[in-house]
Design a protein around this nucleic acid. Structure first.
Lengths: 211, 211, 211, 211
DNA sequence: GATTAATCGAGACGGTACGTCAAGTCTTGAT
DNA sequence: ATCAAGACTTGACGTACCGTCTCGATTAATC
């Protein structure tokens, strides 16, 4: 994902410089990382609801203005922090076998979700209906990339003749994602390789291969 | 749900009386309903984040103390309100056909989720990791009943010989629930009968019936 | 003073019975004293501002309704409690000597003021401008009786020829009362016999006797 | 009054800065005046009892935190507000005549007491026994300055030979103050020039001049 | 002796203010 | 123009108290 993914206006994005001209003291780029790290720290410790800007600022030994100069709100900070982490954490295996590709990808993604990003994602779910821009960013940087990888893996299998052409690709892709998120957020059973292998063997592959 | 499912200590539960004895003015049971109704109203209007105790109290023309006498927190109020609504809102069809039973149940449940209870459920997801009692109540009164209905429908199909005995029941049940929740909370595609019919036709039934 | 001195309507006065007829359980007269005593206790301990009806009720092991059945408000309770105490606590000496009468009376009254009634009186001062009925009761039962005793002592002196007829009676009476209250409420020097004797010797008697 | 006279700890005093260092945004000194003015406004309108912090904050268009940052309590706010007003509102006439000086001073002070400061002072009387620091501040900034002016006026009269050297100065000073406060707070007769002139003519001057 | 009605302690009720805390903005001196 | 620090307004929090009302139980006078 590399399009604008956050709810913040462009002039607040981290990479861009302050407006006007190049005069004045430039932004200390190292503060960005420190602040994101502090936000992640606090988010993982107390959750989204209890995360306060003062706590993040204190954790990073920064002033609140330094945060608000970069992000418009608590939500924006959290979104951007998560996006940054999702970036390039999604591998796309291509070994010429749908079974192997799916297994490898889903296992890697499940492991990734077990970490702080998964916690953060869960923290944001409740906000989605009331924060359209957050919802857009969440879907664009969190759901779509994973969905697209799955779809491409399957489509490569079809073009190789490994998968029958009329397989219910959309449904399989959706249920794969749904199964992971359900485990991650709602059920307290573990989201581990065993689980991934089970749904792969008992659901995804049969749906793709059986007539 | 039939065990104590909420995060509130017993002496705060609506039904139970205050500890000492039967002395003093008893709680006005009609306020319980009024407060839950008000909470649901406000929850549907502004969402969980923006729901304030003041707003609920005002909506119900009650004092805040009257709320806090019954529920320990905003969370506790919302949980209990939802539990009350989930009760007996889950039908269990039994027409002698797995296809018809599943379709009927999933459609009814999807419709139910589209209402305020679904919104409330989504609002609570982010709290689950930090509120163990909420998580327990959520699973016991929200996830388990639905899961159990699905399982019983399928098992009746097996005992009738309609479904092969070695069908992956757990996986199907889990993916059915996961699919619904995924649509409800994460994706912005509608959770409607079309969707239910699609996953039924393209995933659930094939997994149950095909060898 | 024995006229209605409080702000409460007659049917709430302690002595009167409940309306209608004589049927039903009569008021327990012993609760009156218990409640007044409890009020005095709490008033002396925490002052008027911090006195709560719940505290008085708890102190007397009574219900709040039992208080409100007798007095209309916190203010009314406190007023009546004080009035009850002031009643007949003001002696009026008459030994045929203004000096001796004044000394005896002022010393006795100063001692009386040093007790709980004085504390209560001080607690009420701040309310006087905003509570006309309290102010009336306060003056009628607290200030006037004392003032009248002083005036009668002096007038007996005049009629005996002990005091010159054109003595500034009003001014002396007022300054005597003012001196006592000033010491009691505003200054932290003690309101004792030494003080009484000093103002008597250095101010009151000279003003009455010197030409 | 020039020493620390209020019940507030030093770090809350308006003038002093926050402890750590000179960093951070300094207190907006203009808010002090606005808040004191608002407090005086509300105090004059509804009295001390009914004065609420919310009302003061609303009147000054300030947040409650801004008040509590400066004063620890309602009491503390009112005390400080009054102290500020008492400052330099006590003139000290010196015309070479005790009669003229006393008359001028007492009339001016009586007029001053008739205003909001007098109301506030009365409001505080009931708190004095339970708030030692308030009592100290009250006496130091309210009673002592006035007492000292009176004493100096009389002592100048003695040194001029206008007043006999063995006049009961303490008693006269105390009764002058007592008379004013008694009228102000307890009696409902007016504290006006007529009254001042009467006690001057009938009590204070005779006590000072007559042998 | 049974009935009746107002009492009693207890405590829930609708309100209002409390004093605290957080969000997001603004202002300082210094870099 | 940036930085850390922290004061600022706004608004919700959860608690305490007021004065009223409601409960079951008690208690005397009336029937």
């Amino acid at each position: 994902m590399n399009a604008p993914t956050s709810s913040a206006p462009d002039e607040k994005r981290t990479v861009s410089r302050h407006p006007g001209s190049g005069r004045g003291r430039p932004r200390d780029a190292s503060r960005d990382a420190a602040l994101r790290e502090a936000a992640m720290e606090v988010l993982a410790q107390v959750g989204y609801r209890a995360l306060t800007m003062d706590a993040v600022a204190a954790q990073a030994r920064a002033g609140k203005a330094t945060i608000y100069r970069r992000w418009e709100s608590k939500l924006d900070l959290v979104i951007d922090t998560c996006n940054q982490l999702v970036q390039r954490n999604i591998p796309e295996p291509d070994h010429g076998s749908v079974e192997r590709d799916l297994g490898e990808f889903l296992t890697a993604f499940a492991t990734f979700l077990t970490g702080p990003v998964g916690k953060a994602a869960q923290a944001l779910v409740g906000e989605l209906p009331h924060e359209p821009e957050l919802a857009a960013a969440f879907r664009e940087s969190f759901l779509l990339p994973q969905r697209d990888v799955l779809r491409r893996i399957i489509e490569r299998g079809i073009s190789r003749g490994e998968i029958r052409p009329d397989a219910p690709v959309d449904t399989v892709v959706e249920l794969a994602g749904a199964g992971l998120m359900y485990r991650l957020m709602l059920v307290d059973d573990p989201l581990d390789a065993r689980f991934v292998n089970r749904i792969l063997r008992e659901a995804l592959l049969p749906l793709l291969k059986n007539p």
